[in-house]
């Protein structure tokens, strides 16, 4: 009976996402520049859907593995590594290098860098730490801090013009996303989504903890390292596409927990993806029409997310 209610909630969220996406696409559509305006808006909507799904999925899975509701994959230092890659490019090759100005090349370099980092961390360090997730996270925090300190150091040395170029990659942006990259990312995210959805029942079992999961026949260590790699790929592609926007995950997954009140990943995965898409769409509408592009969308999301988080903490402490 609880499931039925949750099914209804999923439908409501899906409808809301569709309506808001429709509104965003067709609001004040100027028919004189239809040929330019419509594809550009659809491009943004598609980007938001893909990034929303990638971030929601990776955060849900990450919180299930770590059994912690205030962690996000950014703790593994992927954001810092992304910024580090951008900074190194500007520092070494300069802001006019094709490595930073050409979207395709930049995407490729960022992807390769992030994947090398995660494969190193997960395949190598995960084995070395004896499959301890929390030890791995601690190493992630240290590496994250290390890379962001290095980035900050280099940012001090480069000239202010280069820094301005660099700054644009520090915030997520959904404007003018390269179409080719969008499709590549969409394909990768879709594959990951299918892999996760195919086996979401074992995520439910992993929620019970390592001992129960092994008892119930889930090959825990292999499954977890597979899931960590999926998280890494999802975070890497979405970060390489739009930039770092990890606070979104924390916000939407906690909202999904509040709304669905269940351990079942069928609802958590789909629900938080829908909430993420809605949040991004609303954020984008606010940046475009209320703030007239004066504020980055990630600033709005961080503001809303931060306020929500404080409310959440106050509510928890009052219990």
């Amino acid at each position: 009976m609880h499931d039925k209610k949750n099914n209804r909630r999923l439908i409501i969220f899906a409808a809301a996402a569709l309506i808001i996406a429709g509104l965003y696409t067709f609001y004040q559509l100027n028919f004189d520049i239809l040929y330019y305006q419509l594809p550009s808006r659809l491009n943004r909507v598609a980007t938001m859907i893909i990034v929303g799904i990638a971030i929601a999925l990776s955060t849900v899975i990450f919180q299930t593995i770590t059994k912690n509701r205030i962690l996000t994959p950014s703790i593994m230092g992927l954001d810092s590594v992304y910024l580090f890659i951008q900074t190194v490019i500007v520092f070494v090759a300069g802001a006019r290098s094709p490595l930073i100005t050409n979207d395709n090349v930049n995407y490729l370099v960022s992807m390769i860098g992030l994947v090398i980092f995660t494969v190193f961390v997960f395949k190598y360090l995960f084995k070395m730490t004896g499959n301890h997730v929390f030890l791995l996270l601690l190493i992630g925090i240290i590496l994250g801090t290390f890379f962001s300190s290095l980035s900050t150091f280099m940012q001090m040395l480069i000239n202010p013009d280069d820094f301005l170029v660099l700054q644009s990659s520090m915030f997520a942006s959904f404007n003018a996303i390269n179409e080719q990259l969008l499709w590549i990312t969409a394909a990768i995210v879709l594959v990951m989504l299918l892999i996760v959805l195919k086996d979401f029942h074992s995520l439910d079992v992993i929620t019970l903890g390592r001992d129960h999961a092994i008892n119930l026949g889930v090959n825990y260590d292999r499954k977890v390292s597979q899931l960590l790699l999926i998280i890494a790929v999802l975070v890497s592609v979405s970060t390489a596409l739009v930039g770092p926007i990890m606070f979104l995950g924390l916000l939407v997954v906690n909202l999904a927990h509040e709304v669905f009140k269940t351990y079942k990943h069928r609802y958590l995965l789909i629900g938080s993806s829908l909430i993420a898409v809605i949040t991004l769409l609303v954020g984008q509408i606010l940046t475009q029409y209320v703030f007239n592009q004066a504020v980055e969308i990630s600033v709005i999301i961080n503001l809303v997310g931060g306020v929500y988080f404080i409310i959440l903490m106050l509510k928890e402490s009052r219990r």
Binding site: D204, L208, L216
Partner: peptide, 26 residues
């Protein structure tokens, strides 16, 4: 095992149903 602290919104029946996971895979 001896320590079974779980911070999950899960009902008694749902938890017991997990015992069938090896057979039904959910």
């Amino acid at each position: 095992k001896q320590s079974n602290n779980m911070d999950l919104k899960i009902t008694v029946r749902e938890l017991i149903s997990f015992g069938r996971f090896p057979y039904s895979k959910g």
